[in-house]
Computed example of a mutant assay.
Amino acid sequence: MIRQAVPAEAAAVHALVRAAYQRYVPVIGVEPAPMTDDYAARIAAQQVWVLVEDAALAGVLVLEERADCFLLDNIAIAPDRQGLGHGRTLLDFAEAQAWRAGWNAITLYTNARMTENIAIYQARGYQLRDRRVEKGFDRVYMVKPLAT
């Protein structure tokens, strides 16, 4: 089940994201941005969705509607639940949310050194749009047109 996160889950959301991204610390040399995000503020802004399985958080999704795009800001799966299709489920949900909000495309970014993520997104139809350094991170922006 996917639902919006509630304020009482901020710590659990943060812990799941930290666990999911921990493996990237040696790859990029610092903690990825999602590890230090303010999830209480994100939840208050209604930007956080959780995937619940067997009464436990299995995944986290942060979606942000900006003036210029619908942004998939973060997707994280609990380490013990990776490889079970939850990432695909959350990507499908994010794309549907963008469509429901009236967007004909969805944008995301990932660290340029997270090459396996780039490959996953390309296989899902995301196209490279931009590469820039922001907040000290080398980011690759990707966009996917949504079906009409």
Results as ranks from 00 to 15, higher is better:
Q47G: 05
R66S: 07
D73V: 09
R42A: 14
P26E: 06
A15C: 01
Q46T: 13
G59A: 11
G85Y: 01
H14D: 06
D68A: 15
Y39D: 01
L51E: 08
L63C: 12
Q46M: 03
G85Q: 04
Q82W: 06
Q82K: 09
R23D: 13
P26Y: 05
V25C: 05
V60T: 00
A55V: 14
H14C: 13
E64W: 09
L16R: 01
L57M: 00
V30T: 14
D54I: 12
A44Q: 08
V30F: 09
R66M: 11
T89G: 03
V25Q: 04
D68Q: 15
A11N: 13
A78I: 05
M35T: 12
A15Y: 01
E65L: 06
L51K: 06
A33T: 12
I43C: 00
V52A: 05
L84N: 07
P34M: 05
A67H: 12
Y39V: 02
P34I: 11
Y39T: 01
D80S: 08
V52F: 08
I75G: 11
A12Q: 12
L16A: 03
T36D: 10
D38A: 02
V17K: 03
L57K: 05
L72V: 11
G59D: 05
P26K: 06
A11S: 14
T36E: 12
P79W: 05
L71I: 09
I43F: 02
Y39N: 00
D68W: 07
A12F: 05
H86D: 05
R18N: 14
Q22F: 10
V60I: 11
D37T: 03
E53Q: 13
Q82I: 07
D80T: 13
L84S: 13
A45W: 11
V27Q: 05
W49N: 07
P32W: 10
I77Q: 00
Q47C: 09
D80W: 13
A56N: 10
L72I: 12
N74W: 01
I28F: 09
I28G: 01
L16W: 07
A40R: 07
V52Y: 10
A40Q: 10
L72G: 04
L72N: 09
V60Q: 00
V60R: 09
E64Q: 15
M35H: 13
Y21K: 08
R42K: 15
I28D: 03
D37P: 04
G59Q: 09
V50G: 11
A15S: 12
E31R: 14
A20L: 03
Q47F: 02
Y21M: 03
W49V: 04
L72P: 00
V52R: 01
A19K: 10
Q22M: 08
I75L: 15
G87H: 01
V52W: 02
A67M: 14
